[in-house]
Design a protein around this nucleic acid. Structure first.
Lengths: 121, 121
DNA sequence: GGCATATATCGAAGTCTTTCTATGTAAGTT
DNA sequence: AACTTACATAGAAAGACTTCGATATATGCC
C-alpha cells in the first residue's frame, strides 16, 4: 500500500483496454458545447466577453472597439460569433445595440468542465 | 422603484459610452485561454475529453478510436490539439500512451467563466 | 429632407483546421 | 530477426476562420 494518494497507472501492470467507457455526451450536445467553446477560442473574443461582463448590460460596440486595433466590421463579426455560440445576446436600442452576457450558457459550460473535472479525479 | 430585480438598461435613458471598462485580461493570458478553449471547440474533442475523464488516467488511443468513425491519425491529431491546449497530458507507457486530464487547466477555465459570470450580474 | 452615428453585410485575401492516405518509429512477442 | 501493435509525422485536399475595405441600413438630430 502506497503512502501517497495517486491515480497514476501502475507501470508494472500490463495495460488492458478499458471497455467500460461510454460516450456520455450525445452528438447534438457535444456540438452545442463545441460551438460555445469555439466562440471563446479567440483571444479578442475572450477579452470582449470580459468587457461586456464589466458593462453590466450597458455596452455598445463603440465601447468595445476603443480597446482593440481592429476595424468596426471585424468587431461586429466577433460579436456575431459570440452571439451564435450563445454566450451573449444583443438587443437593438435605438441607434446602438446593447450586448449582454448569457449567464445560462456560462453556467452550462462551467457544468461541463465540472463534470470532466470531477469524474476524472 | 421597480418590484423586480433587473439589470436591464433603462430604455428611456440616452446611452452614454462606458469609459470605465478596462481590459482585465492581458494579451498573453487571453491567448492562453483561447488556446485551451480552441481545444474544446470541436465536438469530437469534447467527447474525447469526457472519455479520458471516465478512464481515470488509464486510457490509450485504442480506447478512444473505438468510439468514433475516424482514422487513427485523426484521433492522434485531436489528442495533440488537446495536449497543446493544456487540457491533457500524455505519457508514453511502453507500446501505448496514457492520456490524463490536466485538472489544473480545467480549474483555470472554470475560474475565468466564474469571473465573467459573477462580474456580469 | 439631409446628415451624422452605430451597426450589419458583402466579397476577397490570406491563414488555419479537419481529415485522409501513406509512411515512419518504437516497444513487445514469437 | 521478423512480426505485430500503438502511435506519430508528412503531405495534400477541402473547407472554415480572420481580417479588411466598401457599402448598406436604420436611428436620431438639425
Amino acid at each position: 500500500m502506497s503512502l501517497v494518494m495517486t491515480n497514476a497507472p501502475d507501470k508494472s501492470e500490463p495495460y488492458v483496454c478499458n471497455l467500460d467507457l461510454r460516450l456520455r455526451l450525445g452528438e447534438v450536445e457535444s456540438e452545442q458545447f463545441a460551438l460555445a467553446f469555439k466562440a471563446l477560442s479567440n483571444p479578442i473574443r475572450v477579452q470582449i466577453l470580459d468587457l461586456i461582463s464589466q458593462g453590466g448590460g450597458q455596452i455598445c460596440g463603440c465601447d468595445i472597439e476603443r480597446h482593440f486595433d481592429l476595424t468596426q466590421p471585424t468587431i461586429s463579426h466577433h460579436l456575431k460569433v459570440l452571439r451564435d455560440g450563445g454566450l451573449i445576446t444583443s438587443e437593438p436600442r435605438g441607434v446602438w445595440v446593447a450586448h449582454r452576457i448569457n449567464f445560462g450558457m456560462l453556467t452550462a459550460l462551467q457544468g461541463l468542465l465540472m463534470l470532466v473535472n470531477n469524474t476524472g479525479r
